[in-house]
Write a protein that binds this DNA or RNA. Structure first.
Lengths: 339, 339
DNA sequence: TTGTAGGCGTTATCAC
DNA sequence: GTGATAACGCCTACAA
């Protein structure tokens, strides 16, 4: 059914070894021109393709890179994935994509799967939680993976002992807070995402902290915790609306959340930015042209994918390598000057 | 460095075969309770994980599913990918993602790569072009793939001789046209996407044709061809604006194009829908809450991924299986009643 | 039930 | 330069 290298060798009238050398051609290319041509011709004639699995076995290393995301349908992750895919391709690696659906247990499971597959490296995209048990398991899974020859990198918080691209969430949220204060806003609400999700918390806390430094405090009731996605934005906004008093400005710790909130507000007849200002985080590209243009904190998502891939592939010395990415504030129409 | 099954067998004091049976456990599970426990314990102690590549070789079949998209960062494809990822996971398969960056040559290349990898099946997402040479090459690559044991399915047009999920683009565009006409629009423009891209053309032509049936023709100058993405939408809209006369209603054959157009219009001070109405296609979820809410033709993207995966895995009889998906018109604020 | 041995498709180490 | 042949890690008749 499948044509193997032996078939090619026989067809070309050479030994298996010669056929292998002629077709692979990589290392010490010591094969006569004539034989090489015969082999290549035979390979084409038979429509032969080397079996990557067999090669992996024989060579002792695979050619695949694992990418682990929370949810590939989320524009945040798909943008990162695009970067990783590009880098992987440039490195001649196949990308194995695993979408954990926001379930830490599945995430751990998939690290194990990637180990079974003997992936060269794993890129873990998406921030970490502060669940000690989960982190311990994940750390262990990653240690196993690395001990069986793989390397890993993650995008998020440097708490798992592997190379990490750290996003300076605090810086972004802080500069956003300052800018909002400068624009005249004084009464805020925060759609803060999951309580145990570090990226969300970093953004939320930095925002709150900076405002407090500027003399403005946010009531607890105006800080609402939900999931960090579209549905979470909707839910949080509903809670806020139900509470009654609308703030002057709402900070959603992710653009997708801001989007969900936007939808709920529209249904409720609340206008942005006339009735309330709104800002997000990430600057996902799909949203750059909508009205009102959303104020946000930009992250170089594509680039993040590149960096993480590079870090993942660079192997790991004893000390995990940390690279910090800074954010960029993008003020748009959704947060006009207040008075 | 890596612990193998032999290590486990030795540690447990049993033969390789017994260890294999105990750990795999799949088929005829004939292994004594005591030995099994010893093996399992040894495996845990040694932190052993089977080598999927070796298993694939021995068993003669891999456990991976290939997914080929034009661009994973595009919400259209990432939504489909989410569906495929879910189905793949349910089937116990690893997902190998390949993003062709809209390059047909790369797409063909990646089919070859997937064949090397001996993937179980391939899902090709994204419509086809009408480039005969490209299609021939792709068809050949797919034939090779199938002849070496894999199966395939695609989402788009049933022109490659494999199982296909056909999207009824014409139906969607046609009902959109009718609806727009009913709303009172008479002067149209179409951002039609690439000339050689079938999905784009089906949408564009059905829209134009239906309007003509209703007695309205669109001038050639008002039908502009660009790439089928955000940048293409921008470009097309600039061309339209440069031409001078604004139509009453603009149909972009993809939501992402509509988005690009929206951005250009905003810069030019053209308001949607006050100055001109706008509609897209696909109903990507990220856009459901923006203002103005975009009229579009909904495709069940997630479901598309499921269906395609199912078709890809169902193997292929002699006759390729065709399944048609219908669209659903979604009228929103971007196309209000005209007069 | 358990063990022995051959094979999966390649690569790599040797001799020649 | 070229060709046997032993790995690579696992599965699976076949035999015991």
């Amino acid at each position: 059914m499948t044509v193997t290298l032996s078939d090619v060798a026989r067809e070309a009238g050479v030994s298996l070894a010669t056929a292998s050398r002629a077709i692979n051609g990589s290392a010490s290319r010591t094969v006569g021109a004539e034989l090489r041509d015969r082999v290549l011709a035979a390979a084409v004639r038979l429509r032969y393709t080397p079996d990557a699995n067999a090669q992996a076995m024989a060579r002792g290393r695979t050619t695949s890179l694992g990418l682990l995301v929370h949810n590939i349908a989320d524009p945040y992750f798909s943008a990162i994935a695009a970067g990783v895919a590009q880098s992987a391709d440039a490195a001649g690696l196949q990308l194995t994509l695993a979408s954990s659906e926001n379930d830490p247990a599945r995430e751990i499971e998939m690290v194990h799967l990637l180990r079974r597959q003997r992936a060269r490296a794993i890129v873990l995209a998406g921030g970490r939680s502060d669940d000690v048990a989960v982190n311990d398991h994940l750390r262990l899974a990653l240690a196993d993976f690395r001990s069986s020859g793989g390397s890993a990198a993650l995008i998020g918080q440097p708490i798992l002992g592997v190379n990490t691209v750290v996003i300076n969430n605090a810086q972004g949220a802080s500069s956003l807070a300052r800018a909002m204060h400068d624009l005249g806003y004084r009464r805020f609400a925060v759609l803060g995402g999951p309580e145990d999700y570090l990226s969300a918390r970093e953004r939320r806390d930095a925002f709150i902290f900076t405002l407090r430094e500027l003399g403005t405090t946010i009531a607890d009731a105006d800080i609402v915790s939900t999931s960090m996605d579209h549905a979470g934005g909707q839910e949080a906004m509903r809670i806020l609306l139900a509470a009654g008093t609308l703030p002057e400005m709402i900070f959603a710790v992710a653009d997708t959340m801001a989007l969900g909130a936007l939808g709920v507000m529209r249904e409720a007849g609340v206008r942005v930015p006339q009735d309330v200002a709104l800002a997000g985080f990430n600057d996902i590209s799909t949203l750059r042209d909508v009205t009102p243009a959303l104020t946000t904190v930009r992250l170089p998502l594509h680039e993040l994918g590149h960096m993480a891939t590079e870090l993942a592939l660079s192997g790991s010395g004893d000390e995990p390598e940390i690279r910090t990415v800074h954010t960029e504030l993008v003020i748009r129409d959704s947060t006009p000057r207040l008075r």
